[in-house]
């Protein structure tokens, strides 16, 4: 074989080898990509399955609850004011201190129907004790004994700071006693967490109504906010209520 044809043969082998390598890369890229798509699809499907399989447990809805069983009402005025609150939320604590008395007066004067919706969106701020859910559930138990407002006010007057354990069940029962709520039915409901599944469902309803934060104040079906998405003041609420009453 001449030198020239030997070089050509070497070159040809090289080209064939390169082509084979390139083809192998293409095949590997194709099939690994297919595998990745399958893996991601399955992962997403697992997430979806876990979500649909989540069981909220047996929901005991308090008999006194109104508005799809999510709220406790005071007063029977013509304008409805809905207040969504988390007992852990500092901003709700401020709202209660600043505006709570005004709302109660409007309710007593027969101007509004005041509906409190306890929701639990801040469980992550109580070191795993899920104070938001526990307190919302306890407030439902208080409502069943006709003491919702009193207990609600007591919880806000003793509001724990975020990133603490929150109030223990025993402490909530103690606070209830200070407002004359001492029945065994209440104590058992708090200790057994009877209304915890209800609190979760009420929170779902709240979120399903496309509210995202607490406190959310809804007057006559319309979400009311102050300037720049702030919590509305007592004056603004009173004004809006009067306008709605006509």
């Amino acid at each position: 074989m001449s030198k020239g044809s030997r070089d050509r043969a070497v070159k040809a082998r090289q080209i064939v080898a390169e082509q084979k390598a390139a083809e192998r890369r293409r095949t590997v890229t194709l099939w690994t990509s297919v595998a990745v798509v399958v893996v991601l699809f399955v992962a997403g499907l697992i997430g979806y399955t876990v979500l649909s399989g989540q069981d909220e447990g047996k929901v005991t809805t308090p008999g006194t609850a109104v508005d799809e069983g999510t709220a406790f009402a005071t007063g029977s005025g013509p304008v409805t004011v809905d207040v969504y609150e988390d007992f852990m939320c500092p901003s709700c604590g401020n709202f209660e201190a600043a505006t709570g008395p005004t709302l109660k007066r409007l309710a007593t004067d027969g101007k509004i129907t005041l509906r409190f919706h306890p929701v639990a969106i801040l469980d992550r701020f109580s070191n795993g004790t899920e104070y938001s859910t526990r307190s919302a559930a306890a407030s439902a138990a208080a409502a069943e004994e006709g003491k919702f407002t009193e207990f609600h006010d007591a919880l806000y007057a003793n509001q724990p700071a975020e990133n603490t354990d929150g109030l223990s069940d025993a402490r909530m029962i103690e606070l209830a006693a200070t407002v004359g709520l001492t029945s065994d039915t209440f104590k058992n409901a708090v200790n057994e967490g009877t209304y915890k599944a209800w609190a979760t469902r009420a929170t779902e309803t709240f979120l399903g109504r496309d509210h995202t934060g607490t406190p959310t104040i809804v007057v006559d079906g319309k979400t009311l906010t102050g300037e720049n998405n702030t919590v509305p003041s007592a004056e603004l609420i009173t004004e809006t209520v009067e306008k709605a009453a006509g």
Partner: peptide
């Protein structure tokens, strides 16, 4: 629900 599973995958 899907997002964390996708992230881990």
């Amino acid at each position: 629900a899907v997002q964390p599973f996708l992230e881990i995958a």
